[in-house]
Design a protein around this nucleic acid. Structure first.
Length: 358
DNA sequence: TATACGTGGCA
DNA sequence: TTGCCAAGTAT
């Protein structure tokens, strides 16, 4: 006989809603597979969760497909050259994720026999896996009753309980609320249901409260102002930094590229040479920062907004011999897809060579 | 606890 | 246009 497992009313309402509004995402197990007791592949769950950190579902989809096609298993990823991983990740942002993705795959392959740890604690010890991802993979891939809390869950919980304490101070309280709601029988579905609810119904602006399965129990809705939650600390304003970028083109149609240092901003990614990025550009020393002497011609300014500052790069272009010695390499303009170029560098190149990416 | 860390879409 | 923000982590 089947014993009834105690479940919070909110969890029951949410799971019922989830079963009726299942979203078909590439990394998800279909309802039919789940009904047959099949668990999702931990590698796919992990890969998708890392890609989804601070990144939209739409942006992740093509990258997830590309990675899965190129590296079908965690062992394949562990054996891949680091540079190939950075090339494949280029454009997705937060490049420390790609560096840690590779380290994590190596740890799983070398220290865990090719199998992901099946507990929240074991997962949490791996590179690039923090509180959220450890709980998410434990719950979704291994059916562990972990309390999964991301930005969506914070919003849902803060509204449900009308939590006035600002983030991030309110996180421990919110986490305890999530833990109290997480059901032991379907923790993975519950976590995904909470995130789906936050993504589609309990949205930051103009939430669709009339369609919410938790509307009868939501204190923020009862207070007539759900958009007030979650309360957040005030943001700091974004400083502007300036610099110059140097796009050297050879007679053969090659472009001069470099690899950035492993750590920090755009760490391990490919760049065109630039000056430092500072509060003001010194006209006297700008072209001295060029990788080699040439007839540098200014050809415009590109603006790029990072998380914590705005960058305005003056782009210089010159013809140069591709035998010039400097700590970089010459790459065919027709083969720039093979380079690990972050978006800001593609913008600079496109400013100097408008059809570089066509 | 606060800061560094990308990018693109949307109102 | 400008700001907000999206399935966070590391230090």
């Amino acid at each position: 006989m089947i014993r009834d497992i105690p479940q919070a009313p909110e969890a029951a309402l949410l799971l019922s809603w989830y079963d009726r509004h299942h979203r078909d995402l590439p990394w998800r197990t279909s309802p039919a597979m789940a009904a047959g007791g099949e668990r999702p592949d931990p590698y796919r769950v992990w890969l998708s969760e890392v890609m989804l950190q601070q990144t939209t579902v739409q942006a992740v989809k093509p990258y997830f497909a590309k990675f899965l096609a190129q590296w079908p298993t965690v062992g394949d990823l562990a054996a891949a050259p680091q540079e190939d991983v950075m090339v494949a990740w280029a454009g997705l942002g937060y490049y420390a994720r790609a560096r840690n993705l590779k380290k994590c795959a190596e740890a799983v392959a070398n220290d865990h026999g090719g199998k992901f740890p099946d507990t929240e604690e074991g997962l949490r010890a791996l590179p690039g896996i923090g509180d959220y991802t450890a709980a998410a993979v434990a719950a979704i891939a291994f059916n562990r009753p972990a309390a999964v809390m991301d930005g969506n869950v914070e919003r849902v919980i803060s509204r449900l309980h009308a939590i006035d304490t600002p983030l991030p101070a309110a996180k421990p309280l919110m986490k305890s609320k999530v833990a109290a709601l997480t059901p032991v029988d379907r923790p993975g579905d519950f976590a995904q249901a909470m995130m789906d609810l936050g993504a589609t119904i309990c949205t930051p602006k103009r939430p669709a409260c009339a369609l919410c399965p938790l509307r009868e129990r939501c204190l923020a809705l009862a207070g007539h102002d759900p958009e007030r939650f979650p309360v957040k600390a005030a943001k700091k304003d974004k400083p502007v930094r300036v610099g110059a970028a140097f796009v050297a083109v050879s007679a053969d149609g090659d472009l001069f590229l470099r690899r950035r240092v492993e750590s920090g901003l755009l760490g391990g990614m490919t760049e065109v040479p630039t000056t430092g990025w500072t509060s003001r550009l010194d006209g006297d020393t700008t072209t001295e920062a060029a990788p080699f002497a040439a007839d540098w011609q200014a050809c415009g300014v590109v603006t790029h907004v990072f998380t914590h500052f705005e960058l305005r790069l003056t782009v210089y272009r010159a013809r140069a011999e591709n035998g010039s010695d400097a700590d970089g390499w010459w790459q065919a303009i027709t083969n720039l897809d093979a380079a690990a170029l972050p978006t800001v560098m593609k913008k600079a190149i496109a400013q100097a060579i408008p059809n570089a990416f066509r």
